[in-house]
Design a protein around this nucleic acid. Structure first.
Length: 661
RNA sequence: GGCGGCGUAGCUCAGUUGGUUAGAGCAGCGGAAUCAUAAUCCGCGUGUCCGGGGUUCGAAUCCCUGCGCCGCUACCA
């Protein structure tokens, strides 16, 4: 019995659980259930990430404590997972004492290895995202993730010598080609490492809600160091015996947090002298009806609402069947209805229904004994025999699944089984046999049909645990998935004849697109878009706290703050493209007292020619910066959603240098 | 701009190390059957395998190039 430790990311409590979170967690759950069936000693971990300034502020705005807020939100996640039949063995919270102990021990080891030092950090900080950005990362003075303003922060900071780990990380990837999948993601990681890693600031001073740095209570542990260690914590680290769990076999993650898991985390572990996880499997994002999920569009899908309408199992089935793992996918109710009807209602659902009702109609509700070696049933038997290996090839073999996990292989094989069984019934025409009184043959057909359902239920279990149980019950059995031998369960002819069946009832009633409610989206419309749609942790977050109404007051600035920013009108005297740049224009702007050189990212909307003699608004007291090696002495104001759409300018001629107020 | 990937039937995608007339599901059309959730079963695709070159006895599969899309990354003060 081998140990199988699989994790989801820990989700930031401040976020509302959506279809992306559900997808990650369901995928991990299916793996966990499958490995339990195989007889592995599975530890399936999920949990919540609860520290950070965002929670601190949200709590303050709500007049509560961060802990109380986190308690409530974390419980919300637990409820969602319960509803979605998530079979996690442990649920970790970063606010637990056991976690603090683990973080300290990891830190102590990293320090002992000489990879920690005290330095000074100056950076631009985005409070909502709790992320530092370099000057080159920031977009128009705003956070590249969430688009909100950043503050310049200088502080003493502890650093991790990440720069020293590039070669070791690459060597590990060379030696373990299955370490990161899909392969394209591994390539991205390599590329990122090749460009050179910079030391990582791992402490913050402005934040109180977090794990204090050892011996330096002014600092709090950087969220990612705090968060990633959860995987060790849950394994029992640093207590004796954690080695039976660690290293984890699989970290399931969304592509947005790849870098943290594929670079930072392994580097931390190498430094601390701990083994690396075996596989990091990254999946794609869901769009909704072809559009990016965002709160402003109000199209963020609530997995619980979907589960309530279609059934949890149907949703689980859809998510895994619709999209090859690793690819981005599109969630549309129309597709969901289509697949539900084709595979579930018309497929397994109808197969069960017709079979059970024939047993009732022709045999008084008791499954007769029949010939399991019947020649006509051979194709069904063969389809069943391929089921175990479809799981093995789809989910076990990292070489073969270079794309990641392939849930579609076993699901396709199950579809084959259902199809073979339907064909068998059709060709055997039991209704004719009944009419003609061919009892022996009729018994055999019914027996084999029921046997097909027994096998289908067994192997549907990982994806549709509840339905697997109900199918089993409908054929008079009690499914005990973890008691069976996974491979042997497919062997034909195990159904115990003579079993009485309950009356048939539809397990998957047909769905009609017209009757699907249109409120399957989360109900808290926010003004800020969610930039990502998958599972993630804080640095990748862009959503607002539920307490947004109160919290936005924190965004107010005083008139004095505004006065600090000097806005002036200037006239463009010269304009040219910055060479080798896609959208940078180098402008010479006359502001009366002087001519400023401004580099602006407007090259997609404006040609240098049309900029000439145009009046523009610029910030003239912004710290100069270099872009593509060209100095910019200010910033030009423009507006647009993502890309610049239009410049800001006075509605009539103004003397160059005039203040904007 | 750099690096990587993708572009196969109306839709979603398979196509192993290049090898007979390129496949599946869904949708659509026609038929059969009637146990069943109007479900099932059978039959039906002349697709420029994005375009153009090339290597080869032979390429969707390898090389070059063009176009389109995507990801990461670098400049968007």
């Amino acid at each position: 019995m081998s140990s199988f430790y699989i994790t989801t990311p820990i989700y930031y409590v401040n976020d509302v659980p959506h279809i992306g979170h559900a997808y990650t967690t369901i995928a991990a759950d299916v793996m966990a259930r499958y490995r339990r069936m195989r007889g592995d000693d599975v530890t399936f971990l999920t949990g919540t990430d609860e520290h950070g300034q965002k929670i601190e502020k949200a709590a303050e705005a709500k007049g509560t404590t961060p802990k109380e807020l986190a308690d409530r939100l974390s419980a919300g996640f637990r409820q969602v997972w319960e509803k979605l039949e998530i079979s996690n063995d442990d649920f970790i919270r970063t606010t637990e004492p056991r976690h603090k102990a683990a973080v300290y021990e990891v830190f102590r080891r990293m320090q002992a290895a000489g990879d920690i030092y005290l330095g000074e950090y100056e950076g631009l900080y985005c409070v909502p995202c709790e992320s530092f950005w370099t000057e080159t990362q920031v977009v128009d003075g705003n956070c590249p993730d969430c688009g909100r303003g950043v503050d310049t922060v200088t502080e003493a900071s502890w650093f991790f010598r990440l720069s020293a780990f590039g070669d070791r990380l690459l060597a590990h990837m060379d030696a373990h080609p299955e370490f990161i999948s899909p392969k394209s993601r591994a390539n991205e990681v390599r590329q990122f490492i090749h460009m050179g890693l910079r030391d990582l600031s791992i402490s913050r001073t402005g934040v109180k809600w977090g794990i204090p740095m050892p011996d330096d209570p002014e600092h709090v542990m950087y969220v990612w160091l705090d968060a990633l260690v959860n995987y060790l914590t849950a394994a029992g680290f640093p207590n004796p015996g954690y080695e039976t769990r660690w290293p984890a076999q699989v970290h399931v993650i969304g592509k947005d947090i790849l870098r943290f898991h594929a670079i930072y985390w392994p580097a931390f572990l190498i430094s601390a002298g701990l083994p690396l996880p075996e596989r990091i499997v990254s999946h794609g994002w869901w769009t909704i009806d072809g559009e990016k999920m965002s709160k402003s569009k109000g199209n963020v899908i609530d997995p619980v609402a979907v589960a309530e309408h279609f059934g949890t199992d149907a949703m689980r089935y859809f998510l895994l069947r619709e999209v090859p793992f690793g690819n981005d996918g599109d969630f549309s109710i129309a597709r969901m209805v289509e697949m539900y009807n084709a595979d579930l209602a018309n497929g397994i659902g109808n197969l069960l229904s017709r079979t059970v009702s024939m047993v009732h109609k022709y045999r008084g509700g008791t499954v007769p004994a029949g010939d399991a070696a019947d020649a006509a049933a051979a194709p069904v038997k063969e389809a069943a025999a391929l089921l175990p290996s479809s799981f093995h090839t789809g989910l076990d073999d990292p070489q073969r699944t270079g794309r990641g996990l392939k849930f579609d292989e076993p699901l396709e094989q199950l579809r084959q089984l259902v199809w073979a069984a339907n064909t068998f019934i059709h060709d055997s025409a039991p209704w004719t046999l009944a009419r003609e009184g061919d009892d022996a043959r009729l018994d055999t057909v019914l027996y084999n049909a029921v046997e097909a359902l027994r096998v289908a239920a067994t192997y549907f279990y990982p994806v549709m645990p509840e339905m697997a149980g109900r199918i089993s019950a409908a054929i008079g059995l009690t499914l005990d998935p973890y008691a069976i031998d996974f491979d042997a369960a497919a062997h034909w002819g195990q159904y115990p004849a003579g079993t009485p069946l309950p009356a048939p009832e539809p397990l998957f009633p047909r769905q009609d697109l017209k009757t699907v409610p249109d409120h399957l989206t989360v109900k808290t419309p926010q003004e800020n878009p969610v930039s990502d749609t998958s599972a993630e942790t804080p640095a990748a977050q862009a959503s607002d706290p539920p307490a947004a109404t109160e919290a936005t007051r924190d965004d107010y600035v005083s008139i004095g703050d505004f006065a600090k920013i000097r806005l002036q009108v200037g006239t463009v005297r010269e304009a040219e493209r910055v060479k080798k740049s896609e959208k940078l224009l180098k402008l010479q702007v006359d502001i009366g007292t002087e001519v400023r050189q401004i580099v602006a990212g407007i090259g997609r909307m404006y040609t240098p020619e049309e900029m000439l003699e145009r009046q523009v608004v610029i910030i003239t007291n912004l710290r100069p910066a270099k872009l593509m090696g060209v100095e910019s002495q200010g910033m030009l104001l423009a507006a647009g959603a993502d890309e610049v759409e239009a410049l800001l300018a006075p509605s009539g001629p103004v003397t160059p240098g005039a203040r904007v107020r």
